[in-house]
Nucleic acid binder design. Structure first.
Length: 446
DNA sequence: TTGACTCAACATCCTTTGCTACAA
DNA sequence: TTGTAGGTTTCCATGTTGAGTCA
């Protein structure tokens, strides 16, 4: 009889039905067995079921879980869950930060009642999820990552650990939840999706689409986007209303000279080198050239100098000074693109700073103080964009940032938790006049 | 257990003028 | 004459994280 079993990130098919062409099967070069990548498991079963074939399914040996939740789903969370169920338990739910994606996942875990792997990008999120799941289900939760390797019917893992363990444990879960699922499009991480057999898959993100188009990979591995709400859909109800204020500043004379000089070097190279700078692919081409073409390298470095000048313009510091004075009684997070600027700001305005160099304990202490109110402001580069539980603020100042829509959405999300006094959140965006930063700022608005 | 270190991986990085050689 | 690809076989720099190692 035909037998399906999980083996090293694949589904092995023994004695396939002779009169039936099963899709996705390939002969294993070493053993000669017929195998399919584990994520094709559901599709294989569909084909076999569709032909009324009798087969022995040793993949699906999961013990059902008896779980319940005390959460009352909000309307949109219920709709998201229903949409996912209608898609046969495969797909991505796109909800803004703070809209309660975890709650949707917990409801999905309850409704499936199957061993579940939750995959998250950072150890910080790993701990949050574990606490949340333990509190909700009153069972021990397994953990891959952060120095632990314990498997339980419900297990939380980092993407890195999931990558390392997937071929080993990939057959042990019936449902996999990918938090911040856009990461799954990464060149290496996508293998996680391939090596797991779980037929039911739920992806969670605030920003599904990727500029490199790799959300199509995510779709293939997890399923299509089945539900989507943007910040503006929830602002006023479940998220705070907000305003965005753009403040334009000018370069000093010296900065202007440095910027123009560097920018010209860059543009000059493009003009004389037959490079159209239309897309990320063209940029990569330039990067490749710079490996052995000194002029390309010079152009690239010049572009970086220009970026630094426009992003870290002195006038932005003055603008920040007046913003901080205006919001003496508010809770303010300041974002930059460069760590050295973080430290400059920290020194000049006596702001607690968090960067990648800040150790775990110091980081926790700063965030705790920010939470309880003894600090009312904090300055950071990109650390707090994602994957960290950041206490709520009501004012964000984006001193500089990339053109990434995702980064912008995440930063905005940091101030959108509903205010107890019903007040509005405010995001300042500082942009240097007559530089490419004007376009960068446009791009990230999406 | 902790801290310091290294390493690998991921994300962003770009935006508007015009050459050359070859294919259709 | 007109239209279009060009470049190779990854990676200029910076910021960030997780895993692993070692003391």
């Amino acid at each position: 009889m035909t037998t399906l079993s999980f083996e090293d990130g694949t589904v092995r098919v023994d004695d396939p039905p002779p009169d039936l062409q099963l899709p996705f099967l390939e002969a294993d070069p070493r053993s000669g067995d017929a195998r399919a990548p584990a994520f094709r498991y559901a599709a294989l079963r569909d084909v076999l079921d569709g032909c009324d074939e009798v087969y022995d399914d040793r993949v699906r040996s999961w013990d059902p879980l008896d779980l319940s939740t005390t959460y009352e789903l909000r309307d949109y969370q219920r709709e998201a869950l229903d949409a996912w169920e209608r898609a046969d338990g495969r797909g991505v739910v796109e909800l803004p930060t703070g809209a309660g994606k975890t709650v949707v996942a917990i409801a999905a875990i309850v409704s499936r009642g199957l061993p579940t792997l939750v995959v998250v990008p950072t150890v910080d999120l790993l701990n949050q999820w574990r606490r949340e799941l333990e509190a909700e289900f009153a069972v021990e939760i397994g953990q891959f990552g952060g120095g632990q390797q314990t498997k339980r019917p419900i297990t939380v893992s980092t993407y890195d650990s999931a990558y390392l363990r997937a071929d080993d444990v990939g057959g042990d879960f019936g449902l996999v939840v990918f938090d911040e699922v856009h990461h799954l499009g990464g060149e290496g991480y996508r293998d996680i999706g391939r090596l797991l057999a779980a037929p039911a898959r739920l992806g969670l993100t605030a920003t599904f689409e990727r500029p490199d188009g790799a959300h199509e990979v995510v779709e293939a591995l997890v399923g299509p986007r089945v539900f989507s709400l943007a910040v503006d859909d929830l602002a006023g109800d479940h998220l705070a209303e907000y305003d965005i204020k753009r403040i334009e500043v000018s370069l000093s004379e010296a900065e202007r000279a440095a910027y123009d000089d560097a920018q010209e070097t860059f543009v000059d190279y493009l003009r004389t080198s037959n490079l159209d700078m239309r897309s990320g692919a063209d940029y990569r081409k330039l990067v490749m050239r710079s490996g052995n073409d000194p002029r390309a390298r010079e152009a690239l470095l010049a572009k970086q100098r220009a970026r630094r000048v426009m992003m870290n313009a002195d006038a932005k510091l003055d603008a920040l000074e007046s913003i901080l004075a205006r919001h003496r009684d508010d809770r303010v997070i300041v974002f930059t693109a460069h760590t050295d600027l973080v430290y400059r700001l920290s020194e000049r305005f006596l702001l607690p700073a968090i960067t990648n160099e800040t150790g775990t304990s110091e980081r926790r202490e700063i965030l705790d103080r920010f939470r309880e109110g003894s600090y009312s402001r904090v300055v950071t580069a990109n650390v707090l964009d994602e994957g960290v539980d950041v206490p709520d603020a009501n004012v964000a100042v984006v001193l500089s940032g990339s053109g990434s829509e995702r980064e912008f959405t995440q930063r905005l999300g940091r101030i959108l938790r509903p205010k107890s006094d019903g007040g509005r959140a405010l995001l300042y965006e500082l942009v240097t006049r007559e530089t490419t930063e004007e376009d960068v700022a446009e791009r990230r608005r999406g």
